[in-house]
Write a protein that binds this DNA or RNA. Sequence first.
DNA 1: TCTGGGGTCCTAGGACCC
DNA 2: TCTGGGGTCCTAGGACCC
Length: 421
Amino acid sequence: MYALVDCNSFFCSCEKVFHPGLQGKPVCVLSSNDGIIIALTPEAKSVGLHRGDPIFKVKDIVDRYKVTVFSNNMYLYSAMSKRIVSILRQACDHVENYSIDESFLDLRSYERNYDLESYMRSISDRICLWTDVPVSVGVAPTKTLAKVGSKFAKQYRGYRSVCVIDTEAKRRKALSMFDLNDIWGVGRRSYEKLIALGIRTPLEFADKSAEWVHKHFTKPGFQTWCELNGYPCISTEEVLQRQTICTSHCFKDMVTTLDALKASVTTFAGNCANKLRGQGSVAACVTVFIGSNPHRADLTQYWNEGSAKLLVPSSDTIEISQAAMKILEDIYIPGIRYKRSGVILSDISSDSSIQLDLFDPTERDARMSLFSTIDNMNQKFGLKTVRLAVEDGEADHWKSKSEYRSPNYLTDINDILTVKC
DNA sequence: TCTGGGGTCCTAGGACCC
DNA sequence: TCTGGGGTCCTAGGACCC
């Protein structure tokens, strides 16, 4: 059996931990640049807000129902996520940290000696007590069915946050009641296809023959079909190294100068290099992209990207930034009002087995120790305490908007909560 | 005026090899 | 008239996820 532990309205729950007055009130969290709603509580849904709504279009609802709005604060959410995962790791040997708010537990070695429902409920209670974040748990023979279970656990209070699908009758009942387009692995296209083929519920899909599934779908569709029938085919593995690392975002204002774009691209390159060093990797390919605002039909549109291979795979902020600057100069054209830029690192491998170059002029060991010192200082004294000067080369207007950001209560020494009693 | 930011896997088709 | 048969690797784009 597998369990899926899913945090309820995770980003909103994190904000509510530090704003206890918001219990039972409508709350939503915005995307970067305060653009659209990316997370919302059931109370916010009930007044007519949806995930994906541009905030400026629903301003009247937000005002009328006094919805509390937060800019997103990923440092805070990551720190909360780490705490929850560490509780799970204490309780289970095999935890796959699937996303910031979801983890799969492989319960195979617990089936014999534990009542899984009460065991998972005790874990869920502990997470709630220790972190104040409510979770929903699904337990089932496959990951796809465990996801179904967790949705039921979230939807119906009667489950007391744990829904177990462990019999054929429960599986059939759950699949007959579940929304087809909420099934993990069924996106918009497959949903439309299934509807066109006359399928209306997950159960009707699961009851089709293997031949029928092979005729209409390829590997991913077949896997979902197997999983719905209780045959696990998505294994539990911890992903240790990301294959691509990307940092990008929209600008608060439109940007026209090369200098401002340089400041943004260097910052993003540095950010990517940090993530890269954080997972003990190096990258061999740097990609930079820039673009105008596609929502402004009245302005000249432009989008371009360029890539460069590094002579030696690296996680060096300076080297990656320099490569990014060259690419940027190639793809930049004047006269465009830019709205976004980004940096992607790919061709990623472990930093323990780098193929060196005989004629490489860089002193790699010295640079590695420089950056490990910088990383330590930034960790101790705050992010960006030591940074490249070019990052400051321009005013702020390339940065993104975040007017409603809460403090970094858990990661910044200056933002630690003061309790008066 | 204002519309996110990350990721993964799979497939088909092209280019190339003998 | 008839024009092989077997591979690999890479890439772009699609579909999906949170």
